[in-house]
């Protein structure tokens, strides 16, 4: 196991690269997903309010 993490002495390099890729891409992914959910919810709220305000368009 330790041998796996050591990566033949290049553990720092390999794990930095994979870690950073994961963090940056994953982070952007999570940020996008959350933003999508938030705007979707907001859009729905606006929709409902508009429907309430003018029942017969």
């Amino acid at each position: 196991m330790a041998e796996f993490f050591a990566m033949g002495g290049y553990g720092f390099h390999v794990w930095t690269c994979w870690g950073l890729s994961g963090i940056l891409l994953g982070g952007l992914g999570i940020a996008r997903e959350r933003r999508l959910r938030r705007t979707a919810k907001l859009a729905k709220q606006h929709d409902e309010r508009a429907k309430r305000e003018e029942p017969n368009p």
Partner: peptide, 17 residues
């Protein structure tokens, strides 16, 4: 896909507002 969906929703909100 998610970015475009977000911007579609944002446009909807803007239009409502």
């Amino acid at each position: 896909l998610s970015g475009v969906r977000t911007s579609i929703y944002e446009k909807q909100i803007a239009r409502r507002a």
